[in-house]
């Protein structure tokens, strides 16, 4: 019944969104972990500068970020020119471009929870592991990651949810190619423009529920953890 109301493009938008959010979250965790670790331990003078840059996507209108990315990634842009010399076509208006945009846009939502979690791990814990013969890498996997697991959980959920919810950046650099770059938030916009309120309701409602459940998970887990401690 309900499924008949949604067009093939709507289903494609679902799958693009899911793919985009999963891939972006994965990349964010891989890149964000060492980055957040460095931020949590460094006494470097440039730390505030780096922190401010990472936090920018929180305050900046997504269209601004999208605009600069578009300039940068298009075939005339700096990155685009380098890529085209290497024989790679412009990545603006492609799924790859979308992933790059999402990673930048959701960076603070992954780095900040990780950084907070890492900062709360005492230096004594790390030193104790070293006196017990754990190499730095061993210590990272056996002491840091398990102790920061709540931070990872929060980072994954926030990174994923934030990517699912993005609109402005996608619109600027991804365009609206069904099956390639059209994500749910854009599809909803399209339906509203076309006055297809039933479809807009269906897609919006499902996003609302998914987002709510994810946030509920975070807060419920946090609460259980604080009771345990």
């Amino acid at each position: 019944m309900l499924t008949e109301l949604l067009s093939e493009n709507d289903w494609l938008a679902f799958s693009v969104t899911l793919k985009l959010a999963s891939l972006s979250t994965f990349i964010l965790i891989v890149l964000g972990t060492p980055f957040a670790w460095w931020l949590s331990r460094t006494r470097s003078k440039i730390k505030p500068l780096i922190e401010a840059i990472i936090a920018l996507p929180i305050v900046l209108p997504p269209t601004v970020l999208g605009f600069y990315l578009l300039i940068l990634l298009s075939s005339q842009g700096g990155v685009g020119q380098v890529l085209s010399r290497l024989g790679v076509e412009s990545i603006a208006f492609t799924f790859t471009g979308l992933v790059i945009g999402s990673v930048l846009y959701s960076l603070p939502f992954v780095v900040q929870p990780l950084q907070t979690a890492f900062s709360s791990i005492s230096r004594q814990s790390l030193e104790t592991a070293a006196t017990l013969r754990a190499s730095p890498l061993d210590c990272f996997f056996s002491v840091v990651i398990p102790q920061a697991r709540m931070g990872f959980f929060t980072a994954i959920v926030l990174g994923f949810a934030h990517t699912v919810g993005e609109f402005g950046v996608v619109l600027m650099i991804g365009g609206n190619i069904p099956g390639e770059t059209q994500v749910l938030s854009i599809a909803i916009y399209e339906h509203v423009e076309a006055l297809e309120y039933t479809q807009a309701h269906l897609l919006s409602g499902s996003l609302l529920i998914v987002s709510f459940v994810m946030l509920l998970l975070i807060y419920a887990t946090n609460r259980r953890k604080s009771i345990l401690l």
Binding site: T128, S135, V143, Q147, R149
Partner: peptide, 21 residues
């Protein structure tokens, strides 16, 4: 030699047990 390659046993003033283990 880094700490983890020195054959020491270190007992600190305030014991630091790993809370997740």
């Amino acid at each position: 030699k880094p700490t983890y390659q020195r054959e020491i046993g270190y007992v600190s003033q305030v014991p630091c047990l790993f809370p997740h283990l």
